[in-house]
Amino acid sequence: MDKETLLQATDLTLRRAGRSLLQQVSLTVSRGEIVTIIGPNGAGKTTLLRVLLGMVKATSGEVTRRPKLQVGYLPQRVTIDPILPLNVRRMMTLTARYSEPEITAALQLTGAEYLMESPVVNLSGGEFQRVMLARALLRNPELLVLDEPVQGVDYLGETEMYRLIGQIRDQYGCAVLMVSHDLHVVMASTDRVVCLDHHICCQGHPADVSAHPEYLRLFGQGESGVLAVYSHHHDHQHNLSGEIEACDGGHH
């Protein structure tokens, strides 16, 4: 494992009840890169993340994480039971103690600092994900693992969320490993795409993957033109509260 490698999986196979959930999956995540796992429902994407994080043991194969690797993880589905009173401030210190300025800074970065005192159960899908992202940042992660980070986020918010993830990568220098199935946005905001259907069908640069026959088999011709969506330029963008702001040097 070279020193830029944070996490390396070799020939992971996971069998449960006679079914192969993962077959011979090999994957590397290096410092600072954004890797996106795409694949149809039930392709084993979440399972792969859990194996990579060491929460599930693979039947065979090997996962090597860099020693003392700091990981920030956003599980696919976190539901907060309303029986438990929990505001955002308390949610931030759920597993470790952080100072007030640290908490504020993390929430500010994800544009959620105004939610500090709100009960977690009242948050919208997008707000909740931003709080969860801020939580993950508090751990000063070298690797962010995001399982469908735009779940429950509305369409405009999705692009903004991916932009935010890119910004976090730039600012923290952390690697990002995420699972997604909205191909449109993924293709524009990721360094490497891994196409998973129990085994790795293909992986590489988004442009190459989207032309790969295996990718076309899984996702069809219709989606292959998605890169076009991102090759044009917006004259404005939406910030996290949905307001319109001009792009850098943008002209209307």
Partner: peptide, 19 residues
């Protein structure tokens, strides 16, 4: 208290964060 509360809020999240 803190780890017990963490597994009560969400077991998976707590586990991923080393609880």
């Amino acid at each position: 208290w803190r780890p017990l509360l963490a597994i009560t809020v969400d077991e998976e999240l707590a586990e991923a964060e080393g609880v």
